[in-house]
Design a protein around this nucleic acid. Structure first.
Lengths: 134, 134
DNA sequence: CGGTATCCCGGCCGATACTG
DNA sequence: CAGTATCGGCCGGGATACCG
């Protein structure tokens, strides 16, 4: 989808065939990144996760975990006891994704300051015209 | 935001302080990935981009490019001629981002099949219960 | 040609309440 | 404890029309 030929970059083709889209779409979900990071430390109960991901609602917690489970990144284990006990952990694939997150994080730490700086400049620019007029 | 201590992963703190969020939020935008990929080949006119990014509306094209410009990833050059002529190109930072996109793409090509497979299994599973009952 | 301006819809996500 | 159910707001993004 980037270095092949000079054919068009249709979004539909991108969505259906480009592997990057699958991954980026996942990472775009609001709680996915934080959830994977939280689970990097190891197996965890639902309640522990809820506390770690502070501010998350039960609905979003479940929804996020279900998606990650469906995609093979998280394994869910149910203990048939009262009161209920459910534990989550990263699969190999999930830990592998965490590796990609590290790469993203590494790039971001190095370059996010440049982006922030550009944003600041951009928001100053309307003034800059005036400032240079004196 | 992942390997430091065991403090909570609040979304607010993530959004305001974690560099990854800045980047992932950008990449989550529908046309950003494709636009950066399109611009990798070099400087291009607005019309060329519009044709390459097939299906994009003028509004989204402009909006995407403005964001990328604001963030210092794309440079915009205006030629004061009639009819108007505007060209876009990646900045150093933009080309650098393309490098990250390569890493993401590389990971995705390697692992997206596993994700797809997991999804297929997940959608089969309700049947699996039945299939194993005979 | 290279954009704006406007309208509008679908879906993500939050808040809240309820259940086994 | 670990979820589900329901309602509703916000907003990203598509369609369309207009402008210098």
């Amino acid at each position: 989808m980037d270095s092949d030929n000079d054919s068009p970059f249709g979004y539909d083709a991108y969505r259906r065939t480009c592997p990057s889209h699958t991954v980026l779409e996942m990472l775009a979900s609001k709680w996915v990144y934080l959830t994977v990071c939280a689970l990097r430390r190891g197996r965890m109960r639902n309640g522990e996760l809820a506390r770690k991901l502070e501010g998350i609602t039960p609905k979003m917690l479940t929804q996020t975990l279900r998606v990650l489970e469906r995609d093979g990144l998280v394994r869910r284990e149910i203990f048939p006891v009262i009161p209920p006990r459910v534990e989550y952990e990263l699969t190999d694939l999930g830990r592998n994704l965490a590796g990609l997150l590290n790469q993203i994080r590494s790039w971001s730490e190095e370059h996010a300051p440049d982006i922030k700086a550009a944003r600041t400049r951009a928001s100053m620019d309307p003034q800059a015209d005036i400032a240079t007029l004196g």
